[in-house]
Structures are given as structure tokens and as C-alpha cells.
């Protein structure tokens, strides 16, 4: 509300100059669909019988089909994952995560982040799994990992493979993607995260989000978060993130295995943030569509644009 009042009082001159520039340069609008998973936990095959209401759900191969169909229907799509790809089935015990990451590349993931369980076999085997995915012969490119709150100084092989953020451009719209991970204490044995430090995720996110907005000039900021949906104030989480770090449009969440039917809309200083998480084990695929219209007063005021079908 305050923001809207301020914009109104800012004066037509400033507004007009921006608008006239924008109108000449920018395309009319852009749209993007975010598809996402979290905590897939080596569930290569669907859940077998005897798993309650999860029985028969999931499976990487079905996920691949669904993603392919949606890409064909929707056009601009980003397929994202919020971490904890590892641990949970004999596939992980046997293939040490190599299979999980290779299949993610085959499904066509655009970016992932690291959860605590991705460190379960230590940094060395995590890097090996990433490396095997990079070396796979496949038409899809290797997918990158994003995280901005781990300090990889003592783990150069992992540092090379995890970037603080990335920017992807689509017709009429630029998307910035970053990631945050949960604290190691109590979750990852010290020997398994040797050389990697953990920093406060909010403090780490602020400069990255600011850079994405102001330098990279993205239209949409997405955080892949393995902090957890709601930790009731005991530790940083997804629900508090928007209040602590303004300027995030979507949080693709994980860690708490929370089944949400729709994203939670959290108000923040610059509008609102959609916080989503879709259970675990690959039983669901989340979908969030965003549309951006350039240079229109209506969009600048923060009001909603019409729905896309």
C-alpha cells in the first residue's frame, strides 16, 4: 500500500521518461512457467504398494514424459529442483547419486541446488556424481547448480560446479535463479562437508537478489531453497525469507517434505513472494506461471495481470 502511494506521488515526469524509453526497446510482454521438484530422494521408480497414499505415485520416467508434454504446450519453461536428490532407495546406495543426476539431465532440468542429504557420501562423491552427469552423452546440456550461502573455499572441485546465481533469457523476460542451503549442524556429519562453510541465507541472498535486480536487470527472481517451509522461528525458513529479503518473486522450496496444494503468497516490501513446495519422492511436479508486461503503468503499480490460459 505504502509503495503504491509513493509511486503515485513520484511524479508523472519520471514515470513518463522511463516509459517512453521502455516502450521503444522492450517487447510487449514475456511469460514463463516454472516446473519444480524437491526432495526426490533417489525415487527412480514409483512408490511401491504399502506406502499409503503415495503408493503408485512418482517415477522419473513419467516425470520426463509430463515435462516433455508441458514444454511442448507452454513454450518457455524452467525445470528446477530444490535439493535432496540423494538418499532413500537402493539406487542411491548402489550408484552413489550418479544415476540421479544423469537422469535429471535426461529429463531436462535447468538448475538444481544442494540439500543436506546430497552431502551424505561426502564432497568427493558428490563431485563425482556431478561429473558423471556432465560427461553423459545426451542432447540436453548438463544442468548447473546454484547456491549463494555456502562458502566453498576449501572445496575447489565443488566450487567450480556451484554458482551463486544464473540468469536465463526468454522472449520478453529475464529470469535470475539463485539457491540457499540449510545449516549443516545436526544434519551433515562434519567429515562430509569438509571445506565448506555455511553462512546466513538471508544475508547471503540480499546482495545476490539486489545484483540480479539492479545489475542483471532480471524480471523475475527465483530462489531454490533447501531451508524448509516453516521452522517456527527456530531457523531461517521459506516463509520468513520474503520479509527478510525483498525482491524475490518465487521460492521453490524443499527440505521439510511439505505437501502444498498452492503456493503460499507472502507479502514483502516489493509486492509478494510465492512460496511453494510439493512433498517429496517425486510424487508431484509443481507449476508456477509468471507473466511480465513491460512499460505499462498497470504493471508498475504492482496490480495483477490477466491470467494466461
Amino acid at each position: 500500500m505504502e509503495r503504491r502511494d509513493f509511486l503515485a506521488s513520484l511524479g508523472a515526469a519520471t514515470l513518463a521518461s522511463h516509459l517512453s524509453l521502455g516502450a521503444a526497446e522492450a517487447p510487449a510482454s514475456g511469460r514463463i512457467t516454472l516446473l519444480h521438484t524437491n526432495d526426490t530422494h533417489s525415487r527412480i521408480e514409483p512408490f511401491g504398494p504399502g506406502n499409503g497414499n503415495l503408493s503408485g505415485l512418482g517415477g522419473v520416467s513419467r516425470r520426463a514424459t509430463l515435462v516433455r508434454q508441458l514444454r511442448a504446450q507452454l513454450g518457455p519453461v524452467l525445470l528446477l529442483d530444490a535439493g535432496d536428490t540423494f538418499q532413500g532407495t537402493p539406487y542411491f546406495n548402489r550408484y552413489k547419486g550418479r544415476l540421479d543426476y544423469q537422469l535429471m539431465r535426461m529429463v531436462g532440468y535447468d538448475a538444481g541446488t544442494l540439500g543436506n542429504h546430497d552431502f551424505d557420501n561426502g564432497v568427493g562423491l558428490l563431485v563425482e556424481a556431478m561429473e558423471s552427469m556432465e560427461k553423459l552423452q545426451h542432447k540436453n546440456p548438463p544442468f548447473p547448480f546454484v547456491n549463494c550461502n555456502f562458502d566453498f573455499k576449501g572445496a575447489p572441485d565443488l566450487a567450480k560446479r556451484v554458482r551463486p546465481y544464473l540468469v536465463r533469457e526468454f522472449p520478453g523476460l529475464k529470469v535470475g535463479i539463485t539457491g540457499v542451503g540449510v545449516a549443516f549442524a545436526g544434519l551433515v556429519a562434519p567429515k562430509n562437508h569438509e571445506g565448506i562453510g555455511w553462512r546466513d541465507p538471508y544475508e547471503s541472498l540480499r546482495p545476490v537478489v539486489q545484483r540480479l535486480r539492479e545489475v542483471e536487470k532480471v524480471d523475475l527472481v527465483v530462489v531454490l531453497s533447501h531451508l524448509g517451509y516453516n521452522l517456527n522461528g527456530t531457523a531461517p525458513d521459506d516463509l520468513q525469507m520474503p520479509g527478510q529479503v525483498p525482491g524475490i518473486d518465487a521460492v521453490v522450496g524443499g527440505h521439510t517434505h511439505t505437501f502444498l496444494d498452492t503456493p503460499t503468497r507472502v507479502p514483502q516490501a516489493r509486492g509478494e513472494t510465492l512460496v511453494f513446495q510439493v512433498g517429496f519422492g517425486g510424487v508431484n511436479l509443481g507449476r508456477m506461471d509468471f507473466a511480465v508486461a513491460h512499460g505499462t503503468l498497470r504493471a508498475a503499480s504492482g496490480s495483477a495481470l490477466p491470467l494466461l490460459g
Binding site: R3, F6, L7, L10, T14, L15, H18, L19, G22, A26, R31, L57, G58, G59, R62, R63, L66, R213, E214, K217, D219, L220, P246, D249, A250, L260, D261, T262, P263, A269, R270, G271, L274, F276, V278, G282, V283, N284, L285, G286, R287, M288, D289, F290, A291, V292, A293, H294, G295, T296, A299, A300, S301, G302, S303, A304, L305, P306, L307, L308
Partner: peptide, 22 residues
């Protein structure tokens, strides 16, 4: 904040969200 917003000239609203069971 406001100036940055105007440069962006857009507040991306969600247009559709859903959970797709596999």
C-alpha cells in the same frame, strides 16, 4: 526501490499455479 521497480516497469504476478501429481 521505486526507481529500480520503474526500470523493471513490471511486478510479475503469478498467472497459474498447480500441483501435478505423477
Amino acid at each position: 526501490l521505486a526507481v529500480v521497480s520503474l526500470c523493471r516497469a513490471a511486478e510479475p504476478p503469478s498467472v497459474k499455479t498447480e500441483v501435478l501429481p505423477i
